[in-house]
Design a protein around this nucleic acid. Sequence first.
DNA 1: TTGAAAGCGCTAACAG
DNA 2: CTGTTAGCGCTTTCAA
Lengths: 341, 341
Amino acid sequence: MPVTIYDVAKEAGVGIGTVSRAINNSPQISKKTKKRVLEAIKKLKYQPHTVAQSLARKKTSTIACIIPFFTGYFFVELLRGIQRRITDYNYDLILYSVDITHKKETFLERTLQERKVDGVLLVSLEINQKFANRFLRAHFPIVLVDSDSPSLDSISVDNLDGAYMATKHLIDLGYSKIAMIDGQLKSIPARSRFEGYKMALEKFSLSFSDEYFVSCGFETEADGFNKRAGYTAMQHFLQLSENRPRAVFVSSDIQAIGAMEAIKEQGLAIPQDVAIIGFDDIELAQYVGLSTMRQPIRQMGELAVEVLLEKISSESETVFKKEFKTDLVVRETCGGCMHWG
Amino acid sequence: MPVTIYDVAKEAGVGIGTVSRAINNSPQISKKTKKRVLEAIKKLKYQPHTVAQSLARKKTSTIACIIPFFTGYFFVELLRGIQRRITDYNYDLILYSVDITHKKETFLERTLQERKVDGVLLVSLEINQKFANRFLRAHFPIVLVDSDSPSLDSISVDNLDGAYMATKHLIDLGYSKIAMIDGQLKSIPARSRFEGYKMALEKFSLSFSDEYFVSCGFETEADGFNKRAGYTAMQHFLQLSENRPRAVFVSSDIQAIGAMEAIKEQGLAIPQDVAIIGFDDIELAQYVGLSTMRQPIRQMGELAVEVLLEKISSESETVFKKEFKTDLVVRETCGGCMHWG
DNA sequence: TTGAAAGCGCTAACAG
DNA sequence: CTGTTAGCGCTTTCAA
């Protein structure tokens, strides 16, 4: 039923090789015959069969993106950037979403083995050395986004710097009892943000106190970057009553929103009683007036695709590293700078 | 370099057909040889090449999802449902995201021609009869989600009923000057919601007035279901000053949020001066206390996959139609029912 | 230039 | 049950 390259060849009175040359803009074909073949193609409404092409070319024009779905806005925005570039380059995107039942290892294994995609984008997920090596050995292109690993390409955000700036913002505003709510420390971004926080304290001669730091390690389900975790962590600080921190740097906006709920539930005001600064600049942030550190999410997605496709086509061995900076977005939750209606 | 079925056959001392039978759980193979083959497979770390399988089987175990990216939460939630089921069934999902530069027709054409996927999920997008017929003629499975077309499978929401219930809720609360802000009327859901609104007015003997209806038709970029459209539409109503509506049913939460901003900017209070009810129940809704009609988004996604895969495997010709109902979620923007802290 | 033929790696029909 | 063989639809040498 479907028309094949043989039908076209017959119609045009040429061999199938010639048809192939015509559709692949091979220089090894005369203008004349090419024209004839193209006409036959149009007449028969022929379309090459992608799967057959993939098999013959050993290339699928498809990449995989392995991504955790819990991250809400960050994920959507990143995917938007990825999609845009992917489509520009005429590639296809297979989406693998990691959740409680479907682990990242499953998908890494799958992409590595099935040869259904030419490369993979691993988003916000760590990769262990064993897998990293397997990708390297197989010369299977992979780029990490919002994550990092020494021997692999990666596009990330300078979390340490962002956390430093956030904490510094609080200090600049005059706060000194500054706490931090972080994600699970097994997460690299979480660790870097912790470092940035401590670095800022140190730089401005404020001492770090265990009491003022919660890492949401009790959240086993995910990475701790969720609303409930923020809520619970904040309750911990509020129990300190008069000793409670007057400002807290929260490692993600979604946690910050949970924290804000806890504060309001205690009948306390933001920022008068407790100031809050988040991280991410998710869409919700502007609605609740949350000051935060913005990540250039879309750009990260676009760049990731560019790097991956470059890797696929060039086979170059150099590892690519790019670290974006974050921007401070001042809104209402830190006080001090309130200059709007 | 990569190990093929021939290597396994040689290692196990059998023919390639036997190897194929072993990996495809064919009943036509003895336990004994199967065991031997499986061992050889393990020893050589053999993995079937998906692309080759696809070509031979004429089946790709992949489906496409064509979806507009502007819909934010609705989209994420739906995709979550889709992903879950897709993974359960061991299928892959290729994502095509429609935006200003990349039109749905491009992707419909692509899926239809390239034979890279076994079926397609068309989300929140209309399909014209010409394309519908092409899919039908090609026996190419397609299911519409949050959309409809007479001859194709579809999973949608009872927008008319939802709009009716929303409007009725306002009426029950005692409002009579009830306006509506809708998306572009070229959108089917927008039209149905308009019908539901009018039907409720009529049922309770309130008269419909042009002045109290704005369809965001001036928004050319997209479907009008966005924040700015809601903001602008609400400004229109507020210009009526004392004649302004006292309640408005807004066709989507995101527009409702824009409308709420316009109201607050005028120094008016919600719901005291103007009550608002939305549609969708996006995540933001709960943060701003927006009463709204909830759509069972995740379930729609899951069902869509089930229906599509069923269609792919069974070749049945019966068209499947499912219409979910919406649920009223009462929060703070309509007044009357405020019974929480 | 062009046609013929040999794969790409696998499935499935066909003999035995 | 199992091996052999003929495709699946295309790309790519290799001669001519």
